[in-house]
Design a protein around this nucleic acid. Structure first.
Length: 192
DNA sequence: GTATCGATGATCT
DNA sequence: GATCATCGATACC
């Protein structure tokens, strides 16, 4: 696992970043867990919020790497991204965590006790970690964020979820066999 | 196990 | 007016 705080880490291509972040530990105010599912979005990617250039909502995607991009979806849920990539306009959507820290707090925020349901989706983990639009644009290398490297993990890649454009791009990444994914990967999805 | 549907509001055409 | 990088409940297999 590379150094998450090296100056060049966040300038890697977004798919490499999304792949590399699987297995890292993400905490907010000490609450969170191991990243087990991500998706990559790039500036020339029709499925990306940055496609078409900077706008009010996606401004953080065109800011410096190593910062958060947070947006509201369906008027209900928040989603957390980590900004990065070889060019401006890239980000990695954090889709699922394996809960490890502050499980009782997350269970209270989610109104659930089932560990597998706490962070198994982008909207779920945002609720469990109390992510809101107030986090949009914040740097990841200082509180309330804590991002650390983890153990090497076998990673599989497949099609992204919930999009209608560029549906074939295999830019969803997950820890192989993890019970904390938002959805299982296909048997035919390959290791990367 | 899969399928479908409503919630709910910002963003864009 | 349409489209969402979603979730949870419900119905059915």
């Amino acid at each position: 696992m590379p150094d998450l705080f090296s100056p060049t880490f966040w300038t890697q291509p977004v798919d490499i970043l999304a792949r590399t972040l699987i297995g890292a530990e993400l905490l907010i105010e000490g609450v969170g867990g191991i990243i087990v599912e991500t998706e990559a979005y790039d500036v020339d990617d029709p499925a990306s919020h940055s496609f078409g250039g900077p706008r009010a909502r996606n401004a953080a995607m065109f800011g410096p790497g190593g910062h958060a991009y947070v947006y509201r979806i369906y008027g209900i849920h928040w989603c957390l991204n980590l900004v990065g990539g070889a060019r401006a306009g890239g980000a990695v959507l954090i889709r699922a965590l394996e809960p490890t820290h502050g499980i009782d707090v997350m269970a209270q925020r989610r109104g659930l006790t089932d560990r597998r349901a706490l962070c198994s989706g982008p909207g779920k983990l945002a609720q469990a970690l109390a992510v809101t639009g107030a986090f949009d644009g914040l740097p990841l290398d200082r509180p309330p964020f804590a991002l650390r490297t983890g153990q090497p993990v076998e990673v599989v890649a497949g099609a992204r979820i919930g999009i209608s454009k560029a549906v074939a791009q295999p830019w969803r990444f997950g820890a192989k066999g993890s019970p904390y994914l938002s959805r299982p990967f296909s048997r035919h999805d390959r290791s990367v």
